[in-house]
């Protein structure tokens, strides 16, 4: 838990409430950019990640900028499912409510030649997909009973097709996308909004795993797109948007053709 000398932000008024968000996987990349974006828009945020030093530095920077404690940090490993319910309660109490949860935790461990890659693939499944289950299942239950709330999952364009290059990663993101769609179908009638975000190449640590990258966007651009989609309550967005058209075509290429297109797979 963060100790801060900055004053606590006000909770706003009933007509103009301060919105509150949880950001899982906030220490770098899109997560850090989202933390900046949301706090600039007046949100108070709970930042979660494993790396305490990065998290602390990010929160300090944000709180210094606004001269109030808009960001609180909680060191957490998404593999620790047991910790989630208590932590969620704690954050709810600290923030005074909850409007938005963004699951952004994700790793990309490229397969190594000469290895079966079981461990790395299972780790990707655990962080990218199972961690989302551990967080978003209780959040979904909560938001459903409250009849309000927004859930955002950061998936990937990689989840749209089974791609030969990194089966572990591509399937973990496919599972996440499918899970988010299921949540949306379950929760929309309760007034809960679920957004699936599918970024292409973003200039983050994860980019190192990519063999070749093009149309690379800075994480700030991705965060801006995501924020806009949250406001407009979109179902699914690609960032940048041009990936939407590309993936529309790729999704419709029959499998027996797709696997022959080596440059895509």
């Amino acid at each position: 838990m963060s100790k801060s000398t900055y004053p606590l932000p006000s909770r706003g008024t009933p007509l103009a409430p301060r919105r509150k968000a949880i950001l899982v996987g906030a220490s770098s990349g899109i997560g850090a950019a989202l933390a900046h974006k949301l706090t600039r828009q007046g949100y108070t945020v709970a930042l979660l990640a494993r790396r305490a030093d990065l998290l602390q530095a990010l929160a300090d920077e944000i709180n210094h900028q606004h001269n109030e404690q808009r960001a609180r940090i909680y060191v957490h490993d998404v593999l620790d499912h047991q910790a989630v319910p208590t932590l969620l309660n704690r954050i709810l109490t600290d923030l005074g409510g909850l409007d938005l949860v963004i699951y952004n935790a994700g790793v990309n461990l490229p397969p190594e030649k000469g290895s079966t890659n079981v461990e790395t693939d299972c780790q990707m499944a655990a962080v990218n997909y199972q961690g989302a289950l551990a967080w978003l299942n209780p959040v979904a239950t909560l938001f459903e009973s409250l009849g309000a709330g927004q859930i955002v999952g950061i998936s990937s364009v990689a989840g749209d097709r089974g791609r030969a290059g990194n089966p572990g990663y591509t399937s973990s993101k496919a599972a996440l996308s499918c899970y988010l769609e299921a949540l949306r179908n379950r929760l929309s009638s309760a007034g809960v909004h679920v957004l699936t975000v599918k970024p292409g190449f973003v200039d983050t640590e994860m980019l190192k795993a990519a063999k070749r990258a093009f149309w690379v966007i800075p994480p700030e651009k991705a965060a801006g797109d995501i924020y806009k989609a949250i406001q407009r309550r979109k179902q699914t967005i690609y960032t940048s948007a041009r990936w939407g058209l590309v993936m529309l075509i790729l999704r419709h290429i029959p499998s027996f053709v797709f696997r022959r297109l080596k440059f895509l797979a």
Partner: peptide, 22 residues
């Protein structure tokens, strides 16, 4: 012991213009 699964409840004001989980 409060747990989010069974006791967090949406409460509203008289005018239904504002709510908070408690």
């Amino acid at each position: 012991k409060p747990s989010i699964y069974n006791t967090l409840t949406r409460l509203e004001n008289y005018g239904h213009s504002h709510h908070a989980p408690s």
